[in-house]
Nucleic acid binder design. Sequence first.
DNA 1: CTTTGGGCCTGGACGC
DNA 2: TGCGTCCAGGCCCAAA
Length: 282
Amino acid sequence: MPELPEVETVLTGMKEFLLGQTIRDVKIFSPKLRNIIPKNLRKVVVNQRVLAMSRRAKYMLWTLENDQTIIIHFGMTGVFRTRVRPNEKYHPEKHDHVWFELEDGTELIYRDPRRFGVMDLCPNAQLEQSCYLNHLGYEPLDRSFSGRSLFDQIQRRKIAIKQAIMDQKLVVGVGNIYASESLFLAQIDPDRAANQLTYEEAVRLVSAIKKILKSAIRAGGSTLRDYRRIGGERGYFQASFSVYDREGQPCPDCQCDVKKTGGIKRIVQGNRSTFYCPTKQR
DNA sequence: CTTTGGGCCTGGACGC
DNA sequence: TGCGTCCAGGCCCAAA
């Protein structure tokens, strides 16, 4: 469950019941995710209050009283679900990896079938220098991420612009879906070399990225397969996709004869699917 | 420095 | 029904 809008939506949902609460217990069922969950997680976390919750890139961060932070990344298929005051004891289901119990009895379960996610600890003071955060680029919704900053960053990049905006060293949080959608809104061909964009195109692209991410957050993210909000609800931004996963269909306000043009095209860039409209995107 | 390709994992859809 | 292949929202790292 991956990109920025999904992480932001889950963060907002989880703040409502986790922020300010004390973690009463933790159990790890399978420590092997992308990295090994630290053995001392339980020891470090139990009886600690969650003082702050935030997001950096696609990472969710829980700041504890003891100046430690829990770092969580959902990989491709990570989800949290809750159980509230269950009558029967919890038995882990397939792919349940970590279980938290809160002071009010709420149980929080991390599930991740493909185990590409991350759960780790880091002292607050070292968080920015940690291997997870130290190389990350601009937050796309920050004012500092502008047409100028993107334009400057891509001057030496010959890769396709679509791959450039998915590079977390440049700008974070933009994954495969929102990269395609942003490039459609900016009317830029995803296969253009990054350093061939004009300044005006960079401005247009940055404003498209911000607009797409904000409206996806308002829609609670996109649910294609695994992603769910904390209460199990689906996001509904997928209903607003212009091009993603719509190969052969007309794009919004399409004036073409789709029988002739073939509609939206799917290409592969860096082993990932890209969807775009060859007529509108140049 | 940048770029490319492989690897990490499981499950679902599809063709035969 | 079963088997093989391909595909999936992310990220890291070695090698060129």
